[in-house]
Every structure is written in structure tokens, then in C-alpha cells.
Design a protein around this nucleic acid. Structure first.
Lengths: 235, 235
DNA sequence: CAAACCAATTTGGTTAACCAATTTAAGCCT
DNA sequence: AGGCTTAAATTGGTTAACCAAATTGGTTTG
């Protein structure tokens, strides 16, 4: 059951080195938006790594929107100047894996926003889906079963209704890690779950009545225990 | 200069189909946490696609923390139950590209948090780097040059000082798109930039004095114009 | 002289063969 | 019969050969 993160780690190290070299190259050649990078083949022999590694590094930088790769043409600098390019790549290289505390803190921040926006913007369809998620959660709890999944799906339904695609994406990004950590640290015990039903229902009602302030308050109450728990975790 | 997103789009479609089929397979076989998925080769012939496409889809799901791929062993379901797995994959498939409005709205939300946290948690080293970014920005503006990049780097320096790795990652994710859209829509004109120097300086001072409330207020003022602009963009 | 066309080269993307680690199961010795 | 060893098969990862699109440079033609 032990998860060996070594191989991925090593691969990550190689990729970070390549990204670092790409940054240095961009600086050295003073490449500006629209300029073309050398081909993957040339980069791979210049850096003395495999072409696959170069592709991976380019894809990572592309996912951040720093490079644009055009088929049968080349890889180009995005509409970002040299200064920002340099600073951003340096920051990306410094990125570390999210700790649980940061995850929970971020989740609370995002959800206090999503619930307000959902109250303002939810469609009837959104409302229906939130209600379905609510009922699924309530039934599981009443049967005495574990309901961590249904709990989170309720919150994701709210995120979907908030009408902000970026926040929705972020919520989807952190939720699996949240679930994993919850089950690992036994955050949601079953005795708490019963209180959760009522709290969820009140959040739902506030969204239904399109009362953003009330919705936020109810969400705050819902997060009260989580909030305390979050700040008791050892670093 | 036209960006043809067709090939990437097509590839995305294929990948989404595969992800959808993986979800269906997980449901059909009732796979639970720790269970093993068929090998990439078997999946590729079962779905009648290339193995590369299967790998890509698995990597995407792995990046969301839903699958875990172990070298020379297999691909396994992460610690996430069938219900959440199904719901999350469905949500992921429904994800669309972020619109500018969502991006700005999210940025404002994140930065009002980062600036408060930075005021509370910043180290001396953090402070120094924020100041450096501030000076770089001021000098560019005083020389009458475009300073969008330096502007954003100042904000990223604050994000780095906030001590929350998740929020920091998110800020890095949206910043390139923000820059691209800013230059595209000409959000930051040079006449505004001069006001920006003073606003930046006041934010910096508040962080220096470790006054989170003041820092947040100053950031709100700084975002005032952006806020209005954001809500005037045609959908 | 310019514009249009064509072939050769360069490019990112794709496929298939290969590799090393892991797992499985058969075989051997006690 | 049981436990240990070992070899064959399976697996994700890697590498290299291949492909089609796109660019480029030169040639030809009006």
C-alpha cells in the first residue's frame, strides 16, 4: 500500500532541469512573443536529453500558457514578454506539492465565494442537481453509511452552479486530494455527518431563495468545525 | 498570427471519449479504491484507439488524482469511491475553457486573500522580493514603457509570500492568460499605470507593517478599475 | 521583374518496437 | 506437501523510426 513516489520524482527533476534550460535559452537569445524556439530535435541534442523529455517540458510550459506549439511548424513564445516569462518560469520551478493545510484553506476561500455566486446565478437546472446531491447525501447518512463522497459531490454541484468556470476547475482540482486526506485523517466522522444534513439543507434553501449573504453564513457555519480542525493539524 | 486550435481540439475530443469510456468501464466493473485497471494495451484494443491516446487520458485522470499509475505494475483506482469517481469524471468532461470574466473574478478573489495572508505571514526575504518587484515596476512606468509584466510579477511576489502553496499555484496558472487578455483588450493603459505605482506602494507598506486589513483595503482600491472593467466586457 | 508553382527539407505528431522492473506460476529441493 | 528459487510473461516507461503537414528556397513562367 506504500506509494513509492521516487520514479515520478526523478522524472520531475529531469523535466525541471529542462524547463530551466529553456528559460536560460530564452533569456540568452532574448526571445520575444511570437519568436520561434529551436525544434524539439535540436533542443534535445543541445540539452543532451531525449526528445520525449523535451516534449514533456514544452507541454508543461504550454499548459501554463507560456509557449504555443504548432504542428509541423514549431514552438513559439506566447504573448508574454521576456521579463514575465523569466519570472513565471522561475516561480513554476519553485512550485511544491500542496500541503493539506493550504488545500483546506483554499477550499474554504473558494466555497465561500461559490455559494454566494450560486445563490445569485443558479438556474433551475442547477438547483435541481444540487437538490439531488443533497438527497443522495442524506440517504447515505441515514443508512449509517460513510458519505464523504456524496458530501463532496454536493459541494461540487454548488461549484458548478456558481457560473465561474475557473473556480469550478479549481474546485475539481483540489477535491480528490481533499477526499484522500479526509479519509486518511478521519476528518468526517459519522456523528458529525448527521449535523451535516441539516447544514447542507440550509445552504440549499439559501441558494434556492437566492439569498447570497445567508448562503455564505450557512456555509461558514458548515465549515466551522473544518476550520478549527484545519488549524490543529501539525505542520 | 491566427491561432488554429483545431488539431488540439480534435485531440481533446478523442481524449474525452476515452476518459468517458474509462468511466463507464469503472462503473460497469464496480471498481473500488485500490482495484487495478486493465493494462494500457488491453484498453487501447478494447477502445480501438492507440495506446498513446490511452496513456494521455490516464495521465489526465492521474493529474486530477483519480488514478495512480505504478511502473511495471498497472494503473490503480485512487482512494476515491465509485460515486465520487463517477461524478468527478463527469464534471471533468463537462469542463470548458475559462472565459476572461471568470479569470478576472477569480483573480480578484484570490488576491484579496493572498494580500491578507502575505501581511500576516511574510518573511523578511518575501518582503525584499516584493519591494524589488515594486521598484522594477515603478522604473518601467517612469520611463514611459509598458509595464504589464512587472505589474503582474509584483502580484505574483505577493502570492508567493502568502504561504499557501495551492493559491500560489492557482495564481501562476491564471496569470499568463490574464496577461494575454490584458494586452489583447488593452486593459492597462499607460495613464493608469502612474496611479498604479502609488497603489502598489501602499499595498507594499501595508504588508510591511503586517496589517492584513489595510492591505486588503489597498488591494481593493487597486482593483477598483479592473473590477468595473471586468463587468463591462461583453459576454 | 514579379508572381506563382514545385520539390526538398524541416517540423510536431504518431506509431511501433524495445526495455527494465514487477508479478506470476511453475519447478525443484528438502 | 510445503517453501524457496527461478524463469517466463505482463506491465508501464522509453526510444527510435515513421508520417503528413507546413515552410522554404529556387526555378519557371507570364
Amino acid at each position: 500500500m506504500k506509494i513509492d513516489i521516487h520514479p515520478k520524482n526523478e522524472n520531475d527533476t529531469i523535466q525541471k532541469e529542462i524547463i530551466s534550460k529553456i528559460r536560460d535559452y530564452i533569456n540568452y537569445k532574448n526571445l520575444e512573443p511570437g519568436d520561434k524556439l529551436p525544434s524539439e530535435r535540436k533542443l534535445s541534442e543541445k540539452f543532451e536529453v531525449s526528445r520525449g523529455n523535451v516534449r514533456e517540458a514544452i507541454q508543461t510550459l504550454e499548459s501554463y500558457g507560456l509557449l504555443i506549439s504548432k504542428p509541423q511548424s514549431g514552438t513559439f513564445i506566447a504573448d508574454i514578454g521576456p521579463v514575465a516569462m523569466n519570472g513565471m518560469i522561475t516561480d513554476i520551478l519553485r512550485l511544491e506539492k500542496s500541503d493539506f493545510k493550504s488545500l483546506v484553506e483554499t477550499r474554504i476561500l473558494l466555497e465561500l465565494k461559490t455559494v454566494r455566486l450560486a445563490a445569485l446565478r443558479r438556474t433551475e437546472e442547477d438547483l435541481k442537481q444540487i437538490e439531488e446531491a443533497l438527497e443522495a447525501y442524506a440517504e447515505k447518512v441515514k443508512n449509517g453509511e460513510d458519505a464523504v463522497q456524496e458530501d463532496l459531490l454536493f459541494h461540487l454541484a454548488i461549484a458548478k452552479a456558481c457560473g465561474n468556470s475557473t473556480i469550478n476547475t479549481f474546485m475539481l482540482t483540489i477535491t480528490p486530494e481533499i477526499i484522500t486526506n479526509f479519509t486518511k485523517y478521519h476528518v468526517c466522522d459519522k456523528n458529525i455527518a448527521f449535523i451535516g444534513i441539516q447544514e447542507h439543507r440550509e445552504i440549499y434553501e439559501a441558494i434556492k431563495e437566492q439569498d447570497p449573504q445567508l448562503a455564505k453564513e450557512k456555509m461558514k457555519i458548515h465549515f466551522k468545525m473544518l476550520y478549527q480542525y484545519c488549524y490543529n493539524i501539525k505542520d
